[in-house]
């Protein structure tokens, strides 16, 4: 009887931790001001939040087959979420004309220039301020 309740409380704590990770991700997605910051915040929910919720469900599920299916969900999400983020950053790179106002980019090799000095680049990053 008490062992069942101990398992219940473990599951409840882990599930609420996963919900907190998702809440932080949603707050970040709604509050950050630039797309790249929002992508970073969405990644928290995509990998960490999903993993914690699925771990809670693995502890809850009794059979081995169900646990394996749940683990397969985590594996799929961990492969697909970074790939989707990579594609989204490519969209941002090709469609945003004012990208250099927000992020520090390496110069291309064709222009023949070296990257700006670290102090210079840092002060530029501070001025943007988002």
């Amino acid at each position: 009887m008490t062992a069942e309740w101990i398992r219940f409380w473990i599951i409840a704590v882990i599930l609420i931790l996963g919900l907190i990770a998702f809440i932080l991700a949603v707050i970040g997605v709604n509050r950050f001001s630039f797309v790249m910051n929002r992508m970073h915040s969405a990644g928290v929910g995509d990998s960490l939040g999903l993993m914690i919720v699925i771990i809670a469900m693995i502890i809850f599920s009794g059979s081995v087959m169900t646990a394996l299916k749940l683990a397969l969900l985590v594996v799929f999400m961990w492969f697909t979420a970074p790939t989707a983020t990579h594609f989204l950053s490519q969209i941002e790179f090709y469609t945003n004309k004012q990208l250099e106002d927000h992020v520090r980019m390496k110069k291309t090799l064709e222009s023949g220039e070296t990257a700006p000095a670290p102090e210079d680049a840092e002060s530029r990053g501070r001025e943007d301020g988002d």
């Binding site: 991700a25 797309v35 992508m39 969405a42 989707a84 989204l88 941002e92 469609t95």
Partner: peptide
């Protein structure tokens, strides 16, 4: 980009 990101989430 925001829209695709939100749908993914």
């Amino acid at each position: 980009n925001d829209r695709i990101l939100s749908i993914n989430m």
